[in-house]
């Protein structure tokens, strides 16, 4: 009997130790942080909803329960709009990256090119690209290509300016190190410029996600018809706000998924940033 009790006690200790180890692991900590943050946001939303509805004596602002119920009830329709918006945003980010990173790194490192191109950036960057939406719709129609082009245009400048700044701030010792070994210009870009600037480029992509979603919403709501979360939200905001807020939740999920994706990508591509000195 005593042996059985000891055995049970040992098992309990072992299980509790395993649970503690699992809970304390960095990945789990990150998951717990996300869950707590989401719970706090939902609580604040509920409070805001109660306050707004009490002041207005009507159901003006749906609470998280109503919105999330609509997400479940309309999952199929939301999914269609979610994927329409998601691929537009991802495609726009990829186009912006492909165009802005090489150009940003070039003008960051090549002084002559920087002298000629920087004034063009200073003139065009402050122009609100949103001003061109109607013009682009008139020229190219209201299809997905135009919506992607608008978001890509906005993100292009964001990533271009960050890449250029990152390329200008590369540690000279890293450059001297490869130049003294006879590196060609192309080798300097491949072995130093690109990896040295990658963390800042990924940070600018993170910033771009929020900006991209905002401009995607504008682009989608500017066109009369079509798919996409922007269109869905606009269509329901006046008469079925529960549904409109379900669309907003879906947009938040889209942003979260992309943020987490970029974080994972950074952990893979910039593993060196996450290591610490350890003994032999």
């Amino acid at each position: 009997m005593k042996r059985t009790i000891t055995h049970v006690e040992d098992t309990v200790v072992l299980v509790s130790k395993s649970v503690t180890r699992f809970v304390k692991s960095p990945a789990m900590k990150q998951v717990i942080t996300y869950i707590v943050s989401i719970a706090i946001l939902l609580f604040l939303w509920e409070m805001a909803s109660l306050a707004v509805n009490a002041i207005n004596q009507s159901r003006l602002l749906p609470g998280p329960y109503e919105a999330l119920s609509q997400v479940v009830k309309n999952a199929a329709e939301l999914q269609r709009h979610f994927f329409a918006s998601a691929w537009r945003l991802i495609l726009a980010i990829l186009i912006a990256l492909a165009a802005a990173v090489p150009l940003g790194l070039l003008i960051g490192r090549e002084h002559t090119l920087n002298r000629f191109i920087s004034p063009m950036i200073y003139i065009t960057y402050p122009i609100p690209q949103v001003a061109f939406i109607l013009f682009l719709f008139l020229v190219f129609g209201t299809g997905s290509a135009t919506k992607v082009a608008i978001v890509a245009l906005v993100l292009f400048f964001q990533i271009l300016v960050s890449s250029r700044g990152a390329a200008q701030n590369i540690d000279e010792e890293h450059l001297t190190s490869v130049l003294s070994a006879g590196a060609t210009r192309w080798q300097v870009y491949w072995h130093v410029t690109l990896p040295a600037t990658l963390p800042e480029i990924l940070t600018s992509v993170r910033v771009s996600i929020g900006l991209g979603i905002a401009f995607l919403y504008i682009a989608e709501t500017s066109a009369a018809l079509g798919t996409g979360l922007g269109t869905f939200i606009k269509a329901h905001m006046l008469y079925a706000r529960d549904l409109a807020f379900a669309g907003i939740v879906a947009m938040a999920i889209l942003g979260l998924v992309l943020y987490v994706g970029i974080d994972l990508l950074e952990h893979v591509l910039c593993r060196w940033k996450y290591v610490r000195r350890r003994p032999l």
Partner: peptide, 13 residues
């Protein structure tokens, strides 16, 4: 060959 002040190592390699 040149050895620099802080060894000139590339942190990402």
């Amino acid at each position: 060959a040149l050895i620099l002040q802080n060894a000139g190592l590339l942190p990402w390699k």
